[in-house]
């Protein structure tokens, strides 16, 4: 394996960090994410209006100097709601993906490395999960756990996990076929060591890509779940539920959809840039 330019004393993580910091696109992504996180945290300070306060005389008004992003169907300030909605949506996006990764990746690696009946069992269980409609799981969980954002994140995480199982398994098979891994196994390295040293770092790229993609669907899924009584309940805003509401006013009040929609796009885009930076930084083969 090639050593980086940092000399002998530099560990792999340090090298990754150094490379990441030199990755321009990744830094842009990181800054955008940071801005959104700051907005979410400092929403009470930044928001010009109370995001929950309706105004019956100013419903569905277009953007103006007092309401930068216009007002919604109850006359609430869309800009303030986008700021506060960042809290729910960022949490929903990140936490659900982490749950899916933690559930899916170990199982996928296990399936790929063990083969045989373990592989078959995990594989068929994942098939069964994929075939089971998300809606049923969501309604059952809503009744069982009650309406809370955490429960929605759990439901989204569970339902996204099979994808990571399949992806990790497929990538693991590819890595195991590499000569150096075969050699490591032949030399009698214990499986957990092979998994953590050789397999995991090499299967990260597709997992990172999928994680950043899943984030977009998680943010949108949160809204449909809140509609089923599982996620954030009204009047608290989230980008997804703002988009859902805006569906009814696509022609009459497009600004209601545009601003939360653009926010989702920016966050997803930024996370994808960060993901790309991470994969470049972690990939031992990419010398720069």
């Amino acid at each position: 394996m090639r050593e980086g330019r940092g000399g002998y004393g530099e560990g792999p993580w340090r090298r990754a960090l150094r490379r990441f910091l030199r990755h321009r696109a990744a830094i842009v992504g990181l800054v955008v994410v940071a801005v959104f996180v700051c907005c979410a945290v400092a929403a009470p300070l930044l928001a010009p209006h109370d995001p929950l306060r309706p105004s019956w005389t100013a419903i569905r008004r277009p953007p103006s100097p007092t309401h930068w992003f216009g007002t919604d169907e109850n006359g609430r300030d869309v800009f303030s709601r986008v700021l506060f909605g960042a809290r729910t949506s960022l949490l929903a996006g990140v936490v659900s993906v982490v749950i899916a990764l933690l559930l899916g990746v170990p199982l996928g690696i296990l399936a790929g490395m063990s083969g045989g009946w373990v592989d078959a069992l995990i594989g068929r269980a994942a098939d069964a999960m994929l075939a089971c409609p998300f809606l049923i799981l969501a309604i059952a969980l809503a009744a069982f756990l009650g309406p809370a954002l955490e429960n929605a994140m759990l439901a989204i995480g569970i339902s996204a996990a099979p994808i990571f199982v399949r992806l990790a398994r497929g990538a693991t098979l590819g890595v195991l076929a590499q000569p150096y891994v075969e050699a490591a196994r032949a030399l009698g390295n214990p499986p957990w060591r092979t998994a953590s040293v050789h397999v995991l770092p090499n299967i990260l790229p597709p997992l990172l890509v999928q994680a950043t993609l899943t984030m977009a669907s998680a943010i949108l899924a949160e809204a449909s779940l809140s509609f089923l009584g599982l996620g954030q309940q009204p009047p608290a805003p989230s980008w997804g539920s703002m988009l859902n509401t805006a569906q009814r006013f696509l022609e009459t009040a497009p600004w209601m959809a545009v601003f939360p929609g653009v926010s989702i796009f920016l966050v997803v885009f930024a996370f994808n840039l960060v993901g790309d930076g991470l994969r470049d930084a972690l990939d031992p083969r990419l010398a720069r």
């Binding site: 929950l52 309706p54 809503a142 309406p147 809140s226 089923l228």
Partner: peptide, 20 residues
């Protein structure tokens, strides 16, 4: 949501439970 906002002024705190 509108009922929630209106009754708040009279001293109610309405929690909305949207259900399928």
């Amino acid at each position: 949501e509108v009922i929630q906002a209106m009754t708040a002024e009279a001293g109610f705190e309405v929690q909305i439970n949207a259900m399928e």
